[in-house]
Design a protein around this nucleic acid. Sequence first.
RNA 1: GGGCGGUUAGCUCAGCGGUAGAGCACUUGCUCGACACGCAAGGGGUCACAGGUUCAAUCCCUGUACCGCCCACCA
Length: 880
Amino acid sequence: MLDKTFDPKAIEEKHYQDWEEAGVFACDPNSDKVPYTVMMPPPNVTGSLHIGHALNHTLQDILIRYNRMKGKDALWQPGTDHASIAVHMVLEKKLHEEGTNRFKLGRKKFLEKAWEWKEYSGNTITSQLRRLGTTPDWERERFTMDEGLSKAVLKAFVKLYEGGIIYRAERLVNWDPERQTVISDLEVIQKEQKGKMWHIKYPVEGDVEQFITVATTRPETMLGDTAVAVHPDDARYKDMVGKSVVLPITGRMIPIIADEHSDPEKGSGAVKITPAHDFNDFEVGQRHNLQMISILDEHAQLVKEDFIPKEYQGLDRYKAREKILHELEDQDLIVEVETIKNTIPVGERSGVVIEPFMTKQWFVDTPTLAKPAAQAVRDGRTRFIPQQYENMYFAWVDNQIPWCISRQLWWGHQIPAWYDKDGNVYVAENEEDAQKQAGAGVTITRDDDVLDTWFSSALWPFSTIGWPDDTAELGRYFPGDALVTGFDIITFWVSRMMMFSLYIMDDVPFKDVYIHALVRDAKGQKMSKSKGNVMDPIDLIEQYGTDAVRFTLCAMAAQGRDIRLADERLQGYRNFATKLWNASRYCEMNDCLSHDGFDPSTAQYAPNQWIIHEVKAAAQEISQAIEGYRFNEAANAVYQFVWGTFCDWYLEISKPLLAKDSKAADEVRQTTSWALHQILILLNPFMPYITEELYAGFFKKDADDRLITAAWPEYSDNLSNEAAKTEMEWLQTMVGEIRSVRADMNVPAGAKIALLIKGANAQTQSRIESHKDVICKMARLSDISLTENVPAGAVQTIVEEATLILPIADIIDLDEERKRLTKVIGKLDADIQKIDAKLGNEKFVKNAPEEVIEEQKSRKEEALAKRTKLEQAVKQLQSA
RNA sequence: GGGCGGUUAGCUCAGCGGUAGAGCACUUGCUCGACACGCAAGGGGUCACAGGUUCAAUCCCUGUACCGCCCACCA
């Protein structure tokens, strides 16, 4: 006998081990089944999983389990990402605490530590995923820096280089002066802050009285100014264009140029141009062939060069700013200091203010790659679900700027480029090939830098299944069926997989991209480690059990809406697990655990025919919802069916049938068992543990028989039975009506009443005949009989054509009953009036579809008939 | 500045051209032999606001307000 309460902890580990040992997660490249592929977004090896991962992996697991049960050869490809810069953050913080840094430690030792960390973190993540009950093909687990994927990275780099897609160039990039590396545009976030704007006078050449005022938030960069720009149409400055100004402090002469970048509306209409330290100014510099003066080094300190005044050399950028402001003030060159709100670029991970910086870096020509990537989505070869996310994708992909892929870090894929002493570049998969290119005897050294993390993850959909080798898996599982991910990495990852996949594989990487909600904290904020508002899914699992956590996430995963996780929901779905547990317990107690040889299509009794019909309907609803990625609907459908239909009605109906040892009892036992079995299957993708446990206890045939590998049900048409459904809906209305009247009239719950029915037609009479026991039990009646005479002071209610009469004048308040009846009649009148208004509207009758009009008419008929009967009831009450 | 979402019961959220839904919370009654993590019956909503389309609008269109996000800009 099962315990009264379900204890998730007692069973989860046991089943997971059993599944894994049985090898049921594995795909089979030699199988003749239809393949179904989901590529797991590889979690970063930077610690542990958060609740967003739990959602992401739960949804993928539901898809995988469902398709596996549908008889497909399911591949869920797992793995982890090396997360170059994020791991650097973790390790460098540790080193800092130990009083050292990566440069003192050296590259080799640092990488050893990184690999140690990877082992530790990777194991944490995979064990957490196991606790979530997820079923990827662990045997195939990959890591973005393992041997095979590293080979793929080299191959891809060389191919892209040879195709002219990867190139090296000197550009202005986003420099993180603390991490000492370039970062991509996407890794820069704009942070709003209170700042100051200084309006500074630049003296015009040859005229001590004349000045041009420029405004800036970064006065220190004036040391690198190489022009002042005004708008070509700006009358104020027309005469000045072509002249020069004397740059204060340095005394350098810089030209006044005309460029549309300058906005006459803003400030004085003149703007200082510092091409080496501002992205817009860089563009202006290009247009006017201006000199570029880099005044900062990689630490964001002023360089020790002659064009920087001695006393400024080596100063930190902010110290330099103060000093410059002092000096300008002394020279009376500051016109105004304005307090403004502005945004400053900050490194997403380091939090340090980013410096635009001139360096030579490697780039991917994403503007070229993006075109086919955009087209593939426009053509529908890859579709986004929900579709609205296509906008986000297009917004990004249609406005590509070259992707800087080199990083001055150590943990990652070292760039396969070698240089000779003259700076010639040799790109090859290995040093031998590079040497061959360079020629014997030429000394070559490899580029120190590594690739942006997203370079290797962009190859994930094919590198994990063998590329560049021509493996069976590659042919079979590429392109994938579904990618499940959050919208926040459409730009980082999805678009880059699309671009690389189309270039390298000449195909899209996946057919569907399902974008799920973001799990937010109580305030609706995005969870992130830096904000410290992450929720640990393992804590929730400890508290509520894995099944409840999974079910909650699934039930809340409505398309296009974010999730704010609420404790009550988790409790509710934990209760649902307990409900199922107890329903099973009921089945166990009543010997409803066997249906060998039972053919549901031969069921004779209406309640059985009905629940069989309902099982089929629920299964269809669940299947369709999963296939449409409407996870919340799938969860609600199964919840509603199990609790609202099976437990609340079918099991309750079964009680009197089983108690009486009726003719139907045996069929009820088999049907109940069958239905429970179906429920376990249908619920398994959502709640894998409790269903597997119950299955093991009740239906397991042999050691190799598991629910996880059960076939998803396909029911034949002859299981549908509309007649039984109608009949049982009538029964539910009967019971509901009586219960409702009893409660309204405060009839003691224990009082058993003899129900009289007036005006029942033949069908109703026969239905009463067959379901008398059930109705009596459920509505707490002692008997049901037909009558034509209404006893005085009886309570009456109407079900279809029949009037139900409860002769309980002695235990109720007749005034109350009169009020109740009047209220019901009032409602009917309101309904009738509404319908009359519609039917009286010529336009409605002319334009509305026939069936709508008919529906209104029949609804009116019904209401009228009911009202007539109720009015009679009121009269009879009066005469009592 | 451009774009995308959201605004529905006290709370968290579904839904969607033809009489407003769920879970939780709330009220009332239940030791009805599976389950109080339960059973039964209830109360509770001008579906943000203003216009428009339609026989009919919570749903479609336009606009407004507030909230959130994405992209860009910010001398």
